[in-house]
Amino acid sequence: MTRVPAIRALFAALLISSTAVAADAPAPLSFDGADPDIEAAGGRYYIYPTNSGGTSSLHVWTSADRDHWQKGAELIRLDQIGWIGDDGAPRHALWAPDMVVANGRHYLYFSVGPQNPTPSRIGVASCAGFEGPCTDSGKPLVTGGNGFEAIDPAVFVDPASKTPYLYAGGSAGAKLRVWILKPDMVTIDREVPVETPPHFTEGAFMHERGGTYYLSYSSGSYRHDSYQVHYATAPSPTGPWAYRGKIVESDARFKGPGHHAFLHDTADGRWYIAYHRWEGQTGPGPYKGSRSVAVQPIEYRADGTIIPIGMR
Rank of each mutant, 00 (worst) to 15 (best):
M1E: 13
T2K: 15
V4Y: 14
I7V: 12
I7P: 09
A9C: 13
I16R: 14
S17R: 09
S18R: 13
A22E: 15
D35C: 00
E39V: 14
G42V: 13
Y48R: 05
G54L: 07
T55L: 10
G72Y: 05
I76W: 02
G88Q: 05
V101F: 12
R105L: 08
R105H: 15
H106Y: 05
L108P: 03
P114E: 08
S126T: 15
G132R: 00
D136K: 06
G138S: 07
T143N: 08
G145T: 03
N146F: 09
D152M: 02
K162E: 07
L176N: 01
K182E: 08
K182R: 05
K182V: 09
D184R: 06
M185Y: 07
E191S: 07
V192S: 09
E195C: 04
P198E: 04
T201W: 06
H207G: 04
Y217P: 07
S221E: 15
S221N: 15
R223P: 02
Y227V: 00
V229Q: 07
A232I: 01
T233E: 07
S236F: 04
I247G: 05
D265N: 07
T266L: 10
G269I: 06
W271I: 07
W278S: 01
Q281L: 06
V293F: 03
E299W: 12
P308M: 01
I309Q: 02
